[in-house]
């Protein structure tokens, strides 16, 4: 069960930054590399006790979902919905150019 301890490289940190949509600077990536290697080292120990027979817990209180009736409530006004937006146009939120990804 105990797999190798991950070792972060600068490239990996940059790649994680891409996935996280954070434009990390080289300096930040280098610092994070060092810090995350130390942190990773200390938290990999969870694998020591996590046997195959232990069920995972996602939520500490065992509940089943309350299913709400399909009844409408007053929505936000368009003005309220847009009130925090950095840029708007014609009642809509403005995004810079979207490339064809996903």
């Amino acid at each position: 069960m105990i797999s190798g301890m991950p070792t972060f490289t600068r490239e990996e940190i940059k790649h994680l930054g891409d996935l996280a949509r954070i434009a990390l600077t080289d300096q930040e990536a280098d610092r994070l590399k060092g810090e995350l290697n130390v942190i990773a080292d200390s938290i990999t120990k969870v694998q020591e006790v996590a046997g195959g027979d232990v069920p995972p817990t996602a939520n500490p209180i065992p509940l089943e979902a309350y299913l709400r009736p399909d009844e409408a409530e007053e929505p936000l006004t368009q003005e309220a919905a847009l009130s925090g937006a950095p840029v708007t146009e014609s009642g809509m939120f403005v995004a810079p150019r979207i490339l064809g990804e996903e």
Binding site: G17, D18, A20, R21, I22, A23, L24, T25, E28, L32, E35, L36, A95, P96, R97, I98, L99, E101
Partner: peptide, 20 residues
Amino acid sequence: TAANMMAATREAGFGDEVKR
């Protein structure tokens, strides 16, 4: 682009601990 705007926003808007 939108993706680069998001990355620039999050780089500038989050502090070190949050990014970590």
